[in-house]
Design a protein around this nucleic acid. Structure first.
Length: 276
DNA sequence: CCGGCATGGCAAA
DNA sequence: TTGCCCTGCCGGA
């Protein structure tokens, strides 16, 4: 479910629900019993996101490091009217106070770590467009000169943190860039524009809780077409629209597996160009 | 009921 | 590059 915008949103949501007061922690599924026991009754002191990594701080050099992977997710609910409901399915971690509860299921990572380990995780990540301290030049240095495709580079969390398959496809479409273009053929001005756009798009995604990338002039209302309903919930140009018409030029959107992920693009709006 | 699929990432070869 | 992990959902038998 999650690209970086969701993780940042979850940091805020956890902080809102549990910040600054003691929280009960448990692992109904039984796979995080020791960690839950250790933080049980402690106060949630901080909730931070870097890229797709979520860190819940419980003081005393103790962080819960969460990475949702492909299918992980949080469910929030209220306990104001009574006890939290019995966990449904496999709940790795439940957090709970007298007002709220949150269930974490299916994470790739859910582990108790130290300050130093948290810093090490952040250190292996590229700049996150959602963080004020991000340095886009660090990403540019890895892109320029690279023979790897720009599509693969955008998904590489060491290059750029928080961008996933949807933002990757959409930002390349919005800038008319062929996904197969090698990083070394990307122009500096193109990178600057891509980064600036990611900052805007992802920030909007945090607020909306979904990914919308379609410009006003191409929206369903403006184009006289039905709005698109899909798992990720937003209006997009190419992501998972293979075989459908491009919203701008009506060419069939193409898809291809690229580094074991599905890539989507419009061959007309994102034409190949000579690569030096 | 089962198989396939998904907005991810790791280790191993 | 491949295989594997994590879970829920949906479509076809």
């Amino acid at each position: 479910m999650p690209e970086g915008h969701i993780i940042h949103r979850l940091a805020a949501e956890n902080h809102r629900a549990f910040g600054g007061r003691p929280v009960r922690a448990s692992s109904p599924q039984g796979r995080f019993v020791d960690g839950a026991k250790l933080i049980d009754g402690r106060e949630l002191a901080a909730a931070e996101a870097t890229g797709k990594h979520l860190f819940l701080g419980f003081g005393e050099d103790a962080w819960v490091h969460v990475h949702l992977g492909l299918y992980g997710g949080f469910t929030f609910g209220d306990t104001g009217d009574g006890p939290a409901p019995e966990p449904v399915g496999l709940v790795r971690l439940r957090l709970e106070n007298d007002e709220h509860y949150a269930d974490l299921r299916g994470p790739n990572t859910c582990a108790l770590i130290t300050d130093a380990e948290k810093a090490a995780v952040a250190a292996r990540l590229g700049p996150d467009p959602l963080r004020a301290d991000a340095d886009p030049d660090a990403a540019w240095r890895r892109i320029t000169g690279s023979r790897t495709t720009i599509a693969a580079l955008l998904m590489d969390q060491k290059v750029l943190a928080g961008v996933g398959n949807v933002y990757r496809a959409e930002v390349l479409f919005r800038h008319g860039i062929d996904p197969q273009l090698p990083g070394r053929s990307l122009r500096r001005a193109e990178w600057d524009a891509l980064w600036a756009d990611l900052v805007v798009l992802m920030r909007e995604g945090v607020g909306a809780g979904r990914i919308d990338t379609v410009r006003p002039e191409h929206t369903p209302e403006a184009m006289n077409r039905p709005p698109r309903v899909d798992d990720h919930g937003g209006e997009v140009y190419v992501y998972r629209r293979a075989g459908q018409r491009c919203l701008v030029c009506a060419t069939d959107v193409r898809t291809e597996e690229h580094a074991s992920r599905n890539l989507f693009w419009c061959p007309t709006c994102q034409p190949p160009r000579p690569t030096a």
